[in-house]
Design a binder for these strands. Structure first.
Lengths: 223, 223
DNA sequence: GACTTTAGTCACCAAAAGTGACTAATTCGC
DNA sequence: GCGAATTAGTCACTTTTGGTGACTAAAGTC
């Protein structure tokens, strides 16, 4: 990403690295030295012998010292013109970073998602699409678990889901659904955190389960 | 798509055009004159002043004489190497074609999805991803309605959903869900089709509806 | 020890989905 | 014409899932 090819690259690969910081989601930005000091998502030009997926992983490694724990392609963005590169088009990925490993290499900074500096229109669109991708995959991939430490309390897990979904959940309903899905198993550790009853720690340990067997749901959003 | 740029293009834009033919889904292929007579998805190199989305629509127009009634990006494909173009990477779209307009321009042929000729690995991956994209959007966009004529019987609609989902649905459940979603309204026409009671014709006429208000669903697929 | 705070569970109700059986209206075979 | 077959449309019943408030449990605070 640092070295700029002499000729403008036909497309770029960008990554939206997401982590949970406190009660907020945060994404990683860098200040490109050549791009008028503007903040930008990490990106690079495609390199020979490298697939799109491995390029996105390398971007994460360059920024954090280790690869994101989960990545997924968001899509190709070519309609919003402006981009830190002058590439006509960009392929974007989301990557999840557990909070422990959220220390960055020099030149990279976490920004709370609610308060981002100005980005190029195309990268702004990527951040919005990243949120939608995460929310859409939330019940198909262990996204919340990847953002938590390996053991966690059920309240922490619920707070993570609330953060990712952007809405409050009812405690009993959440736990009932969780139990039905056989996704967590209790450890024999408990954690006392200030006042209140200590909470039992759980780990992510999915078990085989009969596929939920549903019919059609017409969840149309528009009138 | 016909004219080949002198230098290999950095990427291509491909489209998976889908229609319903009889009891099967079909996709549109073309036999590129320069690519060893192999069948391929319609594709073209990016052109100046054209966004990705409009390029995919133009591909549909070139093949069918009119644009697909609905398109959506599937994603960028760069990992499977071989492609009719020698582009390193391709951006793929799905497009829906109503059955009435399924007549093709010269050089294009519909193939039933269950029985496709050999395609390049990358385009094969696109076809599989197109199916997943359609199934994933089925309850968020009026995909089934776009593949049917403007009026249809509820049995035809159910058969379309069964085709797209690849599984049988229960008649009463299907209709109950449909009614709850306020998606169709009856016309005063009936159609008698061979034997059996004539069926009432309906049209797609969504009404405003309160958003279904659900909690978390953990539909994890893997053990 | 009374009060507060957080964890964890329970019971009840409402909504949604699964299912088989029923009635209705037509064509087919005779 | 008439019964059998076929397809459409609806109903009633059961099971499952989700929403919700209230309850008990175990810690800290004063």
């Amino acid at each position: 990403m640092r070295e700029r090819p002499s000729r403008t690259s036909p497309y770029s690969i960008d990554v939206v690295l997401v982590t949970a910081m406190g009660n907020e989601l945060a994404i990683l930005l860098t200040r490109g030295s050549t791009e008028r000091e503007r903040w930008a998502l990490p990106w690079r030009a495609p390199q020979a012998g490298e697939t799109l997926g491995t390029a996105s992983v390398r971007l994460g490694e360059d920024a954090l010292g280790e690869p994101p724990i989960w990545t997924e392609q968001i899509g190709a963005f070519g309609d919003a013109k402006r981009h830190p590169s002058e590439a006509e088009m960009s392929v974007a990925f989301v990557g999840l970073v557990p909070h422990q490993t959220a220390s960055t290499n020099a030149g990279y900074t976490w920004f709370p998602m609610r308060d981002l500096p100005p980005l190029s229109p195309r990268q702004r669109a990527m951040v919005e699409a990243a949120t939608r991708t995460i929310q859409g995959r939330l019940d198909q991939a262990p996204i919340a678990f990847r953002l938590l430490p390996s053991t966690f309390t059920l309240s922490e897990l619920q707070q993570m889901y609330e953060l990712l979904l952007g809405k409050r959940l009812h405690k009993a309903s959440f736990r009932r659904a969780l139990q039905g899905a056989w996704l967590v198993e209790p450890t024999d550790e408990w954690r006392s955190e200030g006042r209140g009853r200590p909470a039992q720690l759980f780990r992510y340990a999915p078990k085989k389960r009969r596929r939920p067997h549903r019919g059609v749901r017409f969840d149309f959003l528009y009138p």
